[in-house]
Nucleic acid binder design. Structure first.
Length: 279
RNA sequence: ACAGUAGGCUCGAUA
């Protein structure tokens, strides 16, 4: 029974949810009842594979088995609705779920992210306040998401304000928040501030990683500085940040736009040699 | 009490 959970996890995470579902049916016939963990695994798996009908069947089956959807079940559904452009449906579900279970941060985060990507940052702010009014404590992830929205809208001041607010509330900053702010600075063309910020990151024991380097590289390319971007490739490796597919994409794109097709092609070869698949 | 489930960052492609 305990291994069943592990098997299901593996199947669902490798796009073989269908197989997991078959397994579950067999187990059920043998009189084995699933818990919400397992149902959530199936639900998430089907959602990821865009097998919406199958996903609904899971929810039905769950009800038939007398297993109540929990906060995680709801957040899985809300998240997938958001990611598939069904924001309204997602908000409605979130509202109705408030009656069944405690509103939860993950579901709100999905909503906030969706609003931010649609450039509706004010609505995103409102979603966060609503969540707090309902007694749910914001965490570092939802703050990061909202900060991302403000950076995207070019409102760095608000992003940094939220950063302090977050720390005052005792949320511990992680690498992702730092990267959101950093790339916000780059996107706004604030190179000097960005460099100072990277210093602070180092002081706080969050030395820039590949994602940070990629953001810098993109900035350099877009600022027409492909030469420097290219040298960053070796520097980052020396600093212990190993280039990934995105690094190469960024560089190749930069060189193409700068009319340096040969360099772009040699980068392509280099990346294939390193075992990366071009996207 | 100690297996397994949900949400956030960098390029590009899609709309």
């Amino acid at each position: 029974i305990r291994t069943l959970g592990t098997v299901l996890t593996n199947l669902c995470k490798t796009n073989r949810t269908r197989n997991a579902a078959v397994l579950v049916n067999i187990m059920r016939e043998k009189g084995c009842r699933l818990d919400s963990f397992s149902y959530n695994l199936l639900l998430e798996g089907f959602c990821k594979e865009h097998q919406i009908d199958a996903a609904y069947e899971v929810v039905d089956q769950m009800a038939k088995d007398g297993c109540l959807p929990d906060a995680i079940t709801c957040s899985i559904i809300v998240n997938h609705l958001c990611k598939n452009g069904q924001l309204n449906a997602a908000s409605r579900l979130l509202k109705s779920m408030g009656k069944m279970c405690v509103p939860n941060v993950a579901a709100y985060t999905a909503i906030v992210e969706c609003l931010c990507k649609a450039s509706k940052v004010m609505d995103a702010e409102e979603a966060l306040s609503e969540m707090m009014r309902k007694g749910c404590t914001p965490d570092v992830i939802i703050y990061t998401t909202l900060m991302y929205g403000h950076c995207k809208a070019g409102n760095l001041d608000r992003a940094f304000e939220l950063f302090s607010e977050m720390e005052q509330k005792g949320c511990v900053a992680d690498m992702v928040v730092y990267n959101v702010l950093l790339s916000g600075l780059f996107k706004a063309g604030k190179l000097v501030r960005a460099c100072r910020f990277m210093q602070q990151m180092v002081e706080r024991k969050f030395a820039p990683n590949v994602v940070s380097c990629n953001a810098l590289m993109d900035y350099l390319c877009k600022a027409g500085n492909v030469k420097h971007a290219y040298t960053l490739l070796t520097w980052m490796t020396k600093g212990g940040c190993f280039p990934d597919v995105i690094t190469y994409n960024t560089l190749m794109n930069g060189h193409c736009k700068a009319g340096e097709k040969e360099v772009a092609f040699s980068l392509m070869d280099e990346m294939i040699l390193k075992g990366f698949c071009p996207t």
